[in-house]
Write a protein that binds this DNA or RNA. Structure first.
Length: 561
RNA sequence: GCGGAAUUAGCUCAGCUGGAUAGAGCGUCGGUCUACGAAACCGAAGGUCGCAGGUUCGACUCCUGCAUUCCGCGCCA
């Protein structure tokens, strides 16, 4: 509807240019808004105010000229000039309700588009090191990253989901030493307990499983424990596999699936790290100082240069990071989106600087980043900080156990990533109107229930037959619902463009509210058959859009609750 | 100290590239089921958009300064 109006306005502007009223077309397309005030029409445009000064015409006068230049059409019922020069458009009723037909015809694909044109994008998210269970921050990353993947797929991108982790660094050593200590019967109070050792209960579980020679299978590896407490190498391999498996189980319970797991160690094995250093040296972006090799990241906007190779010969972490992203570039991703916690903010400049230094044609803003802020968990009015299993932090598994996958996903994705998030366990648990997840799902189940009833009384095809009676959809609540349904494609497109899934979460709550209002105001079944069928079509369309929207959030759409 | 993010109703948060009288949910108060699912609906009260300047037809939105909170600031990852 918006795009149709945009085309009409564009045509009007072209005519004004031809007449000489305007010197040229504006460089940006006219802005079309949905006014919140009903008396301001269905859509409004501010183009007359934007162009008034350049055209040397008063805004309201220019607005009149735009209106007069609009081509004949069947979309606009009425055009008003209001306030300082807004043009308010009232849309023909049949244009509002026609979307019901489109929805029933396109079904699961309604809301999808092809702006991505099959181009390749990678979304990297979670990327937790296998040193412990996933915490709520990882959960937020998982919810946002996975939802971004779904939104990009829905807008025509070819998406790969990737999980990157360090399987060989100092943290993994600490993990192995911690498990070994537990396998030898030592606890954190023992004099030989490793410094920086991991103290969570899960370490004991891993040690126990290792001693009993269990076999574990994770998404990207499988290993059988050697059982020998002295074999640190074997313990490390087993511990990594064990924690990878635990993370996989949590992710599966969270309905998140990755296409690829990428190991940091592989970048050392295949020489990519070394090659990256050589390339940066050859490009002249490095220098030696105090026995270390430095990268002039200040050439690329950093506030100070960064060490690449330490005086002990080892590389700092950002070197493999650069090598990793170079590898992504070589794999041909037009876009790469990294979803991370905001505490990793400082790496952005460094990684991009390293990539620019390679001078292989990587665009300056590549890769893109979506950073999410911290999550705090509230329960019974107090902040929850501890988990039974991990000890020092609340895990994703805790949340799923407490409130279920659907509520966890919805709550973690319903706020702008840049906002700190307070997760209210009691609210997520409420099976009532307090809880937006149930509110939306309830609307879906209600639709399903009415349609089931209609199948018995009016026949299986009644909703379909309603398409010939769409003119019966005329009450304000009914039209408001239809208009909301029509917004869905642009909500999906905008959320995908701006990489902000919370737009979609909020839209679905509003849509559910519109449906509940409609449902309470008007009978669907026990009315004149034509009207009943038209309303059934509207109900079927609503069910479809809620289902499509929830699918993009990874939340289930129950037929009954 | 430097960099990033944030500051909007009692609470949790939206507010689209600057648009019309700043919105929603919860909470509070008052209504609505012998009626297709009341897990719902309708109505009311509630805000100096952190503070002070600036830019312009117009600022919650952009710019400057200040305050407060969070996160970073290592030859850790």
């Amino acid at each position: 509807m918006k795009s149709e109006l945009a085309a009409l306005i564009h045509a009007a502007l072209e005519q004004l240019v031809a007449k000489g009223t305007l010197a040229e077309l504006p460089d940006t397309p006219p802005q079309i808004d949905r006014p919140r005030e009903a008396s301001h029409g269905d859509l409004s445009c501010n183009i007359a105010m934007v162009l008034a000064k350049r055209a040397g015409v008063a805004p309201r006068a220019l607005a009149q000229q735009v209106i007069d230049a609009l081509p004949t059409n069947t979309v606009i019922r009425q055009s008003d000039i209001a306030g300082p020069g807004f043009i308010n458009f009232f849309i023909e009723q049949h244009h509002h309700t026609e979307v019901v037909r489109t929805i029933l015809e396109t079904g699961r694909l309604f809301g999808h588009s092809d702006s991505g044109g099959g181009r390749r994008v990678q979304v990297e998210f979670v990327s937790a090191n296998p040193t412990g269970p996933l915490h709520v921050g990882h959960g937020r990353g998982a919810a946002i990253g996975d939802c971004l993947g779904r939104l990009l797929e829905a807008t025509g991108w070819s998406v790969q989901r990737e999980f990157y982790y360090n399987d060989a660094g100092q943290q993994i050593n600490n993990l192995a030493l911690s498990v070994q200590a537990r396998a030898q019967g030592k606890g954190p109070d023992h004099s030989d307990w490793p410094a920086d050792g991991y103290q969570g209960h899960y370490i004991e579980d891993v040690a126990k499983a290792y001693l009993s020679s269990e076999t574990v299978q994770a998404a990207d590896r499988e290993i059988t424990a050697a059982g020998d407490p002295a074999d640190l190498e074997a313990i490390r391999d087993f511990a990594v596999a064990s924690l990878r498996r635990e993370q996989d189980q949590d992710l599966r319970a969270f309905q998140v699936v990755f296409d690829k797991y990428f190991l940091e160690s592989s970048l050392y094995d295949d020489g990519a790290v070394k090659d990256t250093v050589t390339a940066l040296q050859a490009a002249g972006h490095t220098y030696e100082d105090q026995d270390a090799l430095w990268l002039r990241t200040t050439e690329f906007g950093d506030d100070k240069d960064r060490v690449m190779r330490k005086s002990d010969g080892g590389y700092t972490y950002f070197v493999p990071d650069v090598a990793y992203h170079h590898n992504k570039w070589q794999r041909g991703f037009e876009r790469v989106i990294n979803e991370q916690g905001a505490d990793h903010h400082s790496t952005i400049t460094r990684v991009r600087a390293g990539l620019q230094g390679l001078d292989v044609g990587i665009p300056e803003g590549w890769p893109e980043y979506v950073l999410h802020q911290m999550v705090t968990v509230m329960r019974d009015g107090a902040e929850v900080k501890l988990s039974k299993r991990a000890g020092s932090y609340v895990t994703l598994r805790d949340l799923i156990d407490w409130v279920g996958c659907d509520a966890t996903r919805y709550f973690l994705v319903a706020r702008a990533p840049s906002s700190q998030l307070t997760f209210d366990v009691d609210l997520a648990l409420a099976k009532s109107n307090e809880n937006p997840v149930y509110y939306i799902q309830y609307a879906h189940a209600r639709c399903a229930s009415v349609l089931r009833k209609a199948n018995e009384s009016l026949g299986e095809d009644s909703a379909q037959e309603g398409l010939s009676h769409l003119s019966c959809l005329s009450e304000s609540e009914t039209l408001a619902l239809a208009i909301s349904l029509g917004r869905f494609p642009e909500v999906v497109a905008t959320a995908a463009e701006r990489l902000e899934p919370h737009d979609l979460a909020n839209y679905l709550r509003e849509l559910a509210a519109d449906f509940h209002s409609f449902y309470n105001a008007h009978k669907v079944l026990e009315v004149e058959p034509g009207t009943a069928k038209a309303r059934l079509a509207l109900v079927a369309a609503t069910q479809q859009v809620i289902a499509n929207g929830l699918a993009l959030l990874g939340v289930s759409a129950p037929e009954a609750m």
